[in-house]
Nucleic acid binder design. Structure first.
Length: 193
DNA sequence: ATGTCGATTTAC
DNA sequence: TAAATCGACATC
């Protein structure tokens, strides 16, 4: 097995609609303080497309919370939702100055004989021990990072989950899933025959 | 200062 | 179908 390379700044510095599918099949690595690693293969992501996207927090403008999304690509945006779950996002590149794009990491398959249910963004962050303290962390560093894709995932697109409030944006096909994975969250896209 | 609501999950 | 649980944001 060739050693996998860590995803670079350049990889992240593209629009979210491009980054989201590109992250499928990559490996998310969390190196814990004691040196052990939690690793998982990404199987589901969602693109959040800037200040015009009513489903994105960035549509509220530049605030203390959303500030990181307006900044450098390749950093993490981690926030608390429903008072109990953390969401891990990757800050993407910008289509134009003053924009703010990000990709929500929604599901993954545990690697290295690690037994965990990572089929949903809240569960993924919880099981991988990713919390708000990692907000703004640089994903090109040595604590939380992605490794280049292995294999060729069969990518299918669906509307995003839990954004019915986002007017017409709720119907955009901005959720990307590995059709062959059983770890994709509900609602699961129809599996090809 | 107070009220609303959420990029979810789980239980009834 | 609804509760859990709390911070961000809007409004008063």
């Amino acid at each position: 097995m060739p050693r996998l390379r860590k995803l670079s700044r350049k990889f992240y510095d593209v629009p979210s609609i491009q980054l989201a599918p590109a992250l499928l099949g990559t490996t998310l690595v969390h190196r814990l303080p004691d040196g052990t690693e939690l690793r998982a293969r990404i199987v589901e992501t969602e693109a959040y497309c800037g200040t015009q996207d009513l489903a994105s927090h960035a549509s509220k403008g530049r605030t203390a919370r959303t500030e990181v999304m307006f900044g450098q690509a390749g950093r993490a945006y981690v926030y608390l939702i429903y008072g109990m779950y953390q969401m891990l996002n990757v800050v993407a590149g910008k289509t134009q100055p003053g924009e703010a794009e990000a990709v929500l990491i929604r599901a993954a398959e545990p690697l290295d004989d690690w037994d965990a249910d990572l089929s949903g963004p809240g569960k993924l962050a919880r099981e991988m021990q990713i919390t708000r303290t990692y907000n703004t962390i640089d994903l090109t560093g040595g604590v939380l990072f992605f490794l280049e894709r292995t294999g060729s995932p069969h990518i299918v697109k669906t509307p995003r989950v839990g954004v019915d409030y986002a007017k017409h944006w709720k119907d955009e096909l901005l959720r990307f899933c590995d059709a062959d994975s059983d770890a994709v969250s509900k609602p699961r896209p129809p599996k090809p025959n």
